[in-house]
């Protein structure tokens, strides 16, 4: 009796997992099929698995150099993730502890996130043109930093508010200067918040499409935009196998990052700091 119910439960779980992950599985499976098989066999079973689609992608050169796309995405996403942390950490401390800007600047900054990003498009294009930032990884990274800034500030302000004030007062009694206090005491205690900001920010930055499409043309094209080039790379109709493979390649880095860093999200650094 118990076995029967166990089996049933596993079947239900499997069905749910299959349905929820169907798009991912279908893409993964398609990327391993040859063009001939895709046309013949729409099912989830691969008859003759091949890495030919991947090989085709990595063999492509010039405008289709996937390494350049990946590199651009990595550099721009890194700038777009780390810069908001550097800017927001001291700002968040001042807002949380001194109340500076807590009334207007903090909510206003967080509300930036509610604006559709397209609002920035035209003025930004003109600004970038005059600054020479068009089609540069730095330029793409900077706007991704602006996209990530509100959520970084929100998470860091809340993380710092949750830290016991006693620890900072103890550090002041111990003679810590403001930089020492921030770097040696507050920063390590904010690690869970920093990791959360990093992961969410990196995923957002990596997956960003609009500004990549608008602000880059050749040298700094990110993988999301670059991937779209492959859809029509055959000249005629869409090459589904290559398209699926490039989607898998483009999606892999944030997925891997999320899997490795997930356990660092949340959780408290301050266990044992206060009380018994």
């Amino acid at each position: 009796m118990k076995r029967a119910s166990d089996i049933l439960r596993i079947l239900v779980f499997l069905a749910a997992a299959l349905i929820l992950n169907f798009p991912v599985i279908a893409t993964l499976v398609t990327s391993l099929k040859s063009n001939a098989e895709i046309a013949r066999n729409p099912g989830l079973w691969v008859e003759a698995p091949t890495l030919g689609n991947y090989a085709a992608i990595f063999d492509a050169a010039g405008r289709f150099d996937v390494w350049t796309f990946l590199n651009s995405s990595l550099v721009a996403a890194a700038i777009g993730t780390i810069l908001p942390i550097i800017v927001c950490f001291p700002a968040a401390w001042v807002m949380a502890r001194r109340g500076v800007g807590a009334a207007i600047l903090f909510p206003a900054t967080v509300n930036l996130r509610t604006l559709p990003l397209i609002v920035f498009a035209i003025p930004l294009y003109i600004m970038y043109q005059s600054l020479g930032l068009l089609d540069t990884r730095l330029g793409l990274g900077l706007i991704l930093a602006v996209v990530n800034l509100p959520i970084a500030l929100l998470i860091l302000v809340n993380t710092i508010r949750d830290l016991p004030v006693d620890l900072e007062e103890a550090a002041r009694m111990d003679g810590a200067s403001l930089p020492t206090l921030l770097l040696r005491i507050v920063l390590p205690l904010c690690r869970p918040g920093l990791v959360t900001v990093f992961i969410l920010g990196f995923i957002t930055a990596w997956n960003e499409f609009l500004f990549g499409l608008m602000l880059t043309t050749r040298d700094a094209v990110p993988i999301t935009v670059g991937a779209s080039f492959f859809f029509a790379s055959g000249g005629g109709g869409v090459e589904w196998g290559v398209a699926a493979a490039i989607i898998v390649i483009a999606a892999a880095p944030p997925v891997v990052l999320g899997l490795f860093m997930y356990r660092h999200i949340g959780g408290s650094m301050t266990t044992g700091a206060v009380k018994g």
């Binding site: 006693d166 620890l167 007062e169 103890a170 005491i185 650094m269 044992g272 700091a273 206060v274 009380k275």
Partner: peptide
């Protein structure tokens, strides 16, 4: 100062 919460750096 010795704090009520001890305030040890965790």
């Amino acid at each position: 100062m010795v704090f009520q919460s001890y305030a040890l750096y965790p």
